[in-house]
């Protein structure tokens, strides 16, 4: 039982890592129906920005909490600028073209960003210092969960609730939902869809940046390639939960995390990915739109 509890908590922590990236993925998909493959790279760039900012700031002798705060702000600003620019340059010109074009453009952007960081920074793995506080009350139970895992879990929950409120109850959220339903109609009734889509990308990238800082702190390392692996898993989680649905992304991530850790714990880590994809296939057979996905009829 004790072992099960340990695995379950590990799975929860792992799920919240996936969720942190899956949220941005699913949000962008929900509004513009584009699988933004560059999302993982924006997350990685967020991590790098925080690493560089954190290095400068702690060299200046600022206190650790301030360093953490300012590096997160820097990561959010820089990644958002990336998200905004990517959408303007790579997706907007293709908005009325077949959907496949934008998808390929997304894959291209993902490769460009990876190689940009490889060339501009380094091909090496770098140590990522943890600026996150060590919560003393967790020390006795550190076999079960540690501070960083708890911080990631709490952040994920806050972001999920925040995004749901943003989309359901604000003016911008209403415009987003209108854009998601029908771009042309939304435009006719006066929604500035260019602005809405830009805001969507900026928010998605900001979330990716926060994810980058937290997850890199947890891993203790960063490399230009981390966005790819994380992006794939987060994508699976988002599809599992029903892509486009905010709570769905979180639920899907947790299911993925639990499946992987319990599968590893009781069977073998050799088949970790196999467990994840068996669950994905089962759910997609039973519910093709994902667990919380809406069944959308294709418009003919």
């Amino acid at each position: 039982m004790d072992y099960f509890l340990k695995l379950f908590l590990s799975g929860t922590a792992k799920g919240s890592i996936y969720a942190l990236i899956a949220l941005g993925y699913t949000m962008v998909y929900g509004i513009v129906q584009l699988i933004n493959f560059a999302h993982g790279e924006v997350y990685m760039i967020g991590g790098f920005t925080a690493l560089i900012m954190g290095g400068y700031l702690s060299a200046m002798g600022l206190p650790i909490p301030l360093v953490l705060l300012l590096s997160i702000v820097a990561a959010v600003v820089y990644s958002s600028a990336f998200g905004f620019t990517i959408e303007r340059l790579a997706y907007r010109p293709l908005r009325n073209k077949p959907r496949l074009s934008a998808l390929i453009s997304a894959i291209g952007i993902s490769m460009i960003l990876q190689n940009f960081v490889l060339l501009a920074q380094t091909e090496k793995y770098l140590s990522f210092p943890s600026y996150l506080p060590e919560l003393p009350f967790l020390l006795p139970v550190r076999e079960y969960i540690n501070s960083t895992q708890l911080i990631i879990l709490v952040t994920t929950s806050i972001i999920m609730v925040g995004l749901t409120i943003l989309i359901k109850f604000t003016r911008m959220g209403k415009a987003m939902r209108a854009t998601a339903q029908d771009k042309h109609m939304a435009q006719l009734v006066g929604v500035n869809i260019n602005q809405v889509i830009s805001v969507t990308f900026v928010i998605g990238s900001a979330l990716a940046a926060i994810g980058g800082v937290l997850i890199c702190s947890y891993m203790g390392q960063i490399n230009y390639y981390i966005g790819f692996v994380a992006g794939i898993k987060a994508f699976v989680a988002a599809v599992l939960g029903g892509i486009g649905s905010i709570p769905g992304a979180v639920l899907g991530s947790f299911i993925l995390g639990w499946t992987e850790t319990l599968g590893t714990g009781y069977i073998s880590s050799d088949y970790e990915d196999a467990f994840a994809f068996i669950i994905l296939i089962l759910i997609l057979i039973l519910k093709p739109d994902g667990i919380l996905g809406k069944n959308q009829k294709q418009k003919v």
Partner: peptide, 18 residues
């Protein structure tokens, strides 16, 4: 056991070692 290279988290397999 084999683990997935590049994965962000190995806590499950670490639990198993314990």
């Amino acid at each position: 056991e084999g683990v997935n290279p590049g994965a962000p988290d190995y806590s499950a397999v670490v639990n198993k070692i314990g």
